[in-house]
């Protein structure tokens, strides 16, 4: 939520992004079904498998698509009706195609001009610097690699310093160093009070962004909130923990006797247990090991990563 201050009148508080009972039909196909959520400052990741409805949600958010039911509001405005909304949003769509005869500078500069910025040249240079794109001013976009295009797309999305940045699969095509850099940039945008909405299927990177998540599955909102909080809420799903030890078999017997684990799987130098109560179980590991004079080399949670959470939620 954030303060909306019209030129006249009292400040009011409205969410940056608000979906209220939103559905989208394509003929008989239900692409999005009765989705309600709000998004505020910081990085929010929109997660879901292909065909889950992520892109449709993003297109409704930007005003490109009209909800069949419900309402979408950006700072309280309807993005389909109010032409001021594009001033508040920066969008980097998934498709690669740009204006191919232009150079990167010209492409971003055009965005700056069409946003009505006072100094489009300065804004263009700043945006290109932010995405670390060292451009050749004579090179047309048609010769750019996928990774370079991603950064050009991001530059045109942030050139007007929007309050809401919408990025569809922004990490695709970037090398590892560029990905880290991009994630850092998105985090900085989020930390500066911007609302950054990122659609992605590269789950470990979304996890690294430390973001809020909206999980979309089969057109429905499967879960929302902080990734780790969502994981903690899944009490009906056992946590898997691997304990590496020189005496895994004897440790396994002890764990089973404790009554805190559902199952154990033995490997050469480790035992993998499933438990619902991680905290209590963790407290038993050391006493068990001491009791049988076993060494514990590592304790590794196996399914607390985003991929596991995502699979679980989609399965639900």
């Amino acid at each position: 939520m954030t303060d909306l201050i019209p030129p006249t009148g009292e400040p009011v508080t409205v969410p940056m992004v608000q979906f209220e009972g939103v559905s989208k039909f394509f003929g008989e196909l239900v692409a999005v079904s009765d989705v309600t959520f709000t998004i505020g400052e910081g990085v929010t990741a929109l997660l879901g498998p292909n065909g889950a409805g992520k892109s449709t949600v993003l297109r409704m958010l930007t005003g490109q698509a009209k909800p069949s039911k419900g309402s979408v509001r950006i700072f309280g405005f309807d993005p389909r009706q109010d032409r001021r909304v594009p001033r508040m949003i920066g969008v980097a769509p998934q498709q690669e195609q740009l204006f191919e005869t232009q150079t990167a500078y010209e492409f971003v500069h055009l965005a700056a001009v069409l946003q009505g910025l006072d100094d489009p040249e300065a804004a263009t240079n700043k945006a290109l610097d932010l995405v670390e794109l060292d451009i050749d001013r004579t090179r047309p976009l048609s010769t750019y690699s996928k990774g370079m295009r991603q950064r050009v797309k991001l530059a045109q999305a942030i050139v007007h310093d929007p309050w809401i940045v919408v990025l569809d699969e922004p990490l695709t095509g970037l090398d590892p160093r560029q990905r880290l850099s991009m994630i850092g940039l998105l985090q900085r945008l989020g930390d500066s009070g911007r609302c950054v909405v990122v659609s992605s299927h590269i789950l470990d990177e979304v996890e690294r962004m430390g973001s809020q998540v909206l999980v979309i599955a089969k057109g429905r909102l499967a879960a929302e909130g902080n990734f780790h909080e969502i994981r903690e809420l899944m009490n009906d799903r056992p946590h898997e923990i691997e304990i590496r030890s020189d005496k895994p078999r004897r440790l396994a017997v002890g764990f089973l006797d404790s009554g805190l684990v559902h199952s154990v799987r033995l490997h050469d130098s480790s035992v993998i247990v499933e438990t619902n109560d991680v905290v209590k179980f963790a407290r038993t590991i050391a006493p068990q090991a001491i009791a049988i004079d076993a060494s514990v080399d590592a304790v590794v949670p196996l399914n607390d990563d985003l991929e596991s959470v995502f699979r679980y939620l989609v399965g639900q």
Binding site: T2, P6, P7, M16, F75, R84, L114, G116, W163
Partner: peptide, 14 residues
């Protein structure tokens, strides 16, 4: 946080 949103018009001249 104050927002940039006002009811004033945005964008370049036509």
């Amino acid at each position: 946080m104050a927002t940039p949103v006002t009811t004033e018009s945005y964008g370049p001249t036509s």
